[in-house]
Design a protein around this nucleic acid. Structure first.
Lengths: 203, 203
DNA sequence: CGGCACTAACTATGGACATAGATAGTGGAT
DNA sequence: ATCCACTATCTATGTCCATAGTTAGTGCCG
């Protein structure tokens, strides 16, 4: 159900086509909520049917057409209602930690690779999110700038602050995951340490 | 696809029925990977068809029956193969952070409630996971104890260590989420602080 | 003018999961 | 003897999502 609200959030700034939204999901919003175009187009249709959006055919070039959606009053209302209510949190389902729980089944080298992959993955995310925070701080985010331009000046501080707050949370999470995986690497080293010293003691 | 491997992981300890596995998912493994019975039963059938498990009808009471599954050689092999390979990480899709990015749309009180709900949720998880770590440390986890009893003594240290490592990662994550939500509460207070001082300056 | 990357939108299929409910036996408590 | 909580299994429906196409127009580059 969150896809719907992610789309509404973007459409509170300006009317957009499905393709625009898809592009925005690939870059900015997609860092928080990913969605493929095959999910976006039908959802927009459904939202129009539910009265949250209104679509309009726009011609493009000679024969080209695109469908631009703008949010309705009901759409804004639905978004506000969603913001008011509390989320229900999904049950834990974490492949990386599931696997970590049984690392004794892997060769030490494979176990290390798991941890390195975890670090690599979260380092990439970290990079993206750091870039995003820098962009916000420097006022270089086109979508955010358009949003800020539409709202009264006294609201702008809040709007930018919450965006930054969000990304900083994701950054902290990624850093935590990296730290965990590093502890994992240390643990693997310790558990599979060359047992010479111990053997000497035993023999 | 991870459900399959979560089930295999449990079945490396001992043969179990679908109901046993469902119960285990509700308590121990469910802290890492949740699954409802309606997903477990058909998956077990599929795994049997794929030769990873073998099921056996067992009578229970007068007329009762249950189906107990034990892992096959192919099942163990599949589990090892999964442990060897690397996971592909799912794209980010995080309702809590999506919502946080647009908190300026909520009344300050509603915004605070979001943060408090986040704290409450992760505090509950934290509690569960802390209990789990204590259980592991004190040797009071029935499933883990049966697992440890089945393996050579020199393997036991690793097995227990990886379980503990896993839960500690989840604990660190939950603590991070709580810290983030607390920063959120502070930010809300700051952004919506009584503006007397500023007004005085302006007037 | 032909190729090519991009814009634009949609369809089809299948897996994973939530939610809800159906069915039936067990075993202990009142 | 009956009720109830629990054990045990399965089905049904719908949403979400990944993956992989299909179709068609645009606009620039060589």
């Amino acid at each position: 159900m969150s896809l719907r609200y992610a789309l509404l959030a973007l459409l509170t700034v300006e009317p957009m086509t499905g393709y625009d939204l898809y592009k925005e999901f690939e870059s900015s919003v997609g860092h928080v909520w990913h969605a493929p175009d095959s999910q976006i187009y039908p959802e927009l249709r459904r939202m129009e049917k539910d009265g949250l959006l209104e679509g309009e055919e726009i011609s493009w070039g000679q024969r080209g057409k695109k469908r631009q959606y703008h949010i309705t009053e009901a759409g804004v209302e639905a978004f506000r209602t969603w913001m008011k209510g509390t989320l229900d949190y999904a049950r834990v389902r974490d492949p990386a930690h599931l696997k970590a729980a049984y690392l004794e089944w892997a060769e030490p080298e494979a176990a290390r690779q798991q941890m390195l992959a975890h670090i690599r993955h979260h380092t990439e995310l970290l990079q993206q999110w750091h870039d995003k925070v820098r962009e916000i701080e420097e006022g270089g985010s086109p979508m955010l700038n358009r949003r800020l331009a539409k709202i009264p000046p006294e609201q702008r501080r809040k709007t930018a602050a919450f965006k930054k707050f969000t990304y900083e949370g994701l950054i902290a999470r990624a850093e935590q995951e990296i730290a965990w995986a590093n502890r994992g690497l240390a643990l693997i080293d310790e558990l599979y340490a060359e047992p010479e010293a111990t053997d000497l003691g035993k023999s």
